[in-house]
Design a protein around this nucleic acid. Structure first.
Length: 415
RNA sequence: GGAGGGGUGGCCGAGUGGCUUAAGGCGCCUGUCUUGAAAACAGGUAUGCCCGUGAGGGCAUCGCAGGUUCGAAUCCUGUCCCCUCCGCCA
């Protein structure tokens, strides 16, 4: 949610930032509605003040009761109007995305994304790397038909060493983040209410990308971000407790209503996958550099796994709804011959704090402010599995397990 | 799923239609006293919004949302959450 004060005080700045994202924001209408709202609030307050004054002395006279009856009716009318205006205002504001930061490349889509760092030392191989789906079918570590059979397209089953590899990865990632990067591990629910989904920015605009249970009105989480963001909803966090750094390993459920045939091979784009998610609540005063820190935390995992990676600065037209700045971390898959997005790291400024009403008390006192929130995968598991199967393939057709994972897998090769 | 009990400020807790502008206690902050501290005493101690350059003034909020009333923490309805018991259950 954008701040109404900012829209009213600096309308042209806000308009330009949203135009950069490809939006056509109804700024003038918002300002007009807010001015109407203010007038109604003022009139209502004055009438209520009058009524309170009369009520304060005990039982009023019959004349006063008659007068207050009409005052009460006018208050009711104003309240109805006010509710209508505020409803319209809320509808307009709740669908406006966050404002991109100045550093974000301006551009309509992913064509304008910029590779800002490249950590990929290409390894020359004297054999052809088998794509992960072929390797997995040959060795039996994925069972794609079984997944499709029980759940439909874009569901999959991991078997044997495939399942163990994924489990080793998530355990290892959580250990690195909690023991070395300073995150607190959270095991959240995988289904949440509409309020929480709205607070993260996934509702109301992206309802059709998620799974929903009608009977209890619960949504399956598309990422742990939506749960971590709501962890302190409605709270005023005590001074000195920020930053709060959380990490969670959860399944992620997405409808993936993309064009049929796109990214259909293997487990790259699926309707349920596992992910380790990093999340931070910070004092806006100290938010500088936090995104870089989280990027470093994600890159650290790629480095330790020995995977070639690169970092992209996403353009204004490609960052997500709640984000003010996003970097994508990709790893190279030499068998499928493509870059795989394994983490998307975003600074959401105070956009989610405002929607979840998560505030903090500044050090040294003063009135509360909205927290800043940042999130990023650390990392998405199926794609890391893919990257390991292709980067660690040997000439004899086996895959060796990265050193750091061996204490977790208990085996050192597949195939 | 069924039956019952409950939700009041940072915490505890009183409050069954109007002297409630939410008592009282605890905690915290400031001051007096003290060499310092404790104790005692005095004052202060929520959030949001509106008006005002400001000093300041006003409105709302007793889980949440509606309703009844001149007037609601208090009465009514719905809803969320917590507790006890029954049922079901890894």
């Amino acid at each position: 949610m954008l701040s109404i004060e900012q829209i009213v005080n600096d309308p042209e700045f806000v308009r330009q930032k949203l135009v950069d994202r490809g939006e056509d924001p109804p700024i003038d209408q918002i300002i007009e509605l807010d001015s109407q709202r203010r007038a109604l609030v003022h009139e209502g307050d004055e009438l209520r003040a009058k009524r309170n004054e009369v009520s304060r002395g005990g039982r009023p006279s019959p004349e006063q009761i008659a007068e207050m009856r009409s005052v009460g009716e006018r208050i009711k009318t104003i309240e109805v109007e006010q509710e209508e205006i505020q409803g319209k205002l809320h509808e307009l504001l709740i669908v406006l995305p966050n404002l991109p930061k100045d550093a974000v490349p301006v551009g309509a889509d992913e064509e304008s994304n910029i590779v800002v760092r490249d950590g990929s030392a290409r390894v020359e191989r004297d054999f052809e790397v088998e794509p992960n789906w072929d390797f997995a079918e040959r060795t039996g570590i994925f069972d794609l038909p079984a997944g499709a059979n029980m759940s439909g397209a874009r569901f999959y089953v991991l078997k044997g060493k495939g399942a163990a590899l994924q489990r080793a990865l998530s355990d290892w990632m959580l250990d690195v983040h909690t023991r070395e990067h300073g995150y607190i591990e959270i095991a959240p629910p995988f289904m949440i209410r509409s309020e929480a989904m709205t607070a993260s920015g996934n509702l109301p605009k992206f309802a059709d990308t998620m799974f929903h249970d009608e009977e209890d009105d619960l949504w399956l989480i598309p990422t742990a971000e939506v749960t971590l963001n709501y962890l302190h909803a409605g709270e005023i966090i005590d001074p000195g407790r920020l930053p709060l750094k959380y990490v969670a390993h959860t399944p992620c459920f997405r409808r993936e209503r993309t064009a049929a045939g796109r990214d259909t091979r293997g487990i790259k784009r699926v309707r349920q996958f596992e992910k380790v998610e990093m999340f931070q609540f910070v004092d806006p005063k100290y938010s500088e550099g936090v995104l870089d820190e989280m990027i470093a935390d994600a890159i650290d995992l790629c480095e330790r796994l020995g995977l070639p990676w690169r970092l992209l600065a996403l353009a204004t037209g490609d960052i997500s709804f709640q984000s003010a700045q996003t970097f994508d971390l990709e790893v190279w898959a030499p068998g499928s011959q493509e870059w795989l997005e394994v983490s998307s790291l975003s600074d959401c400024t105070d956009f989610q704090g405002r929607r979840s009403n998560t505030r903090f008390r500044p050090e040294g006192g003063g009135s509360p402010g909205y927290v800043n929130s940042l999130n990023g995968s650390g990392l998405a598991l199926p794609r890391i599995v893919i990257a390991i199967l292709e980067n660690y393939q040997q000439a004899d057709g086996t895959v060796s397990i990265p050193e750091v994972l061996r204490p977790y897998t208990g085996f050192d090769s597949i195939g």
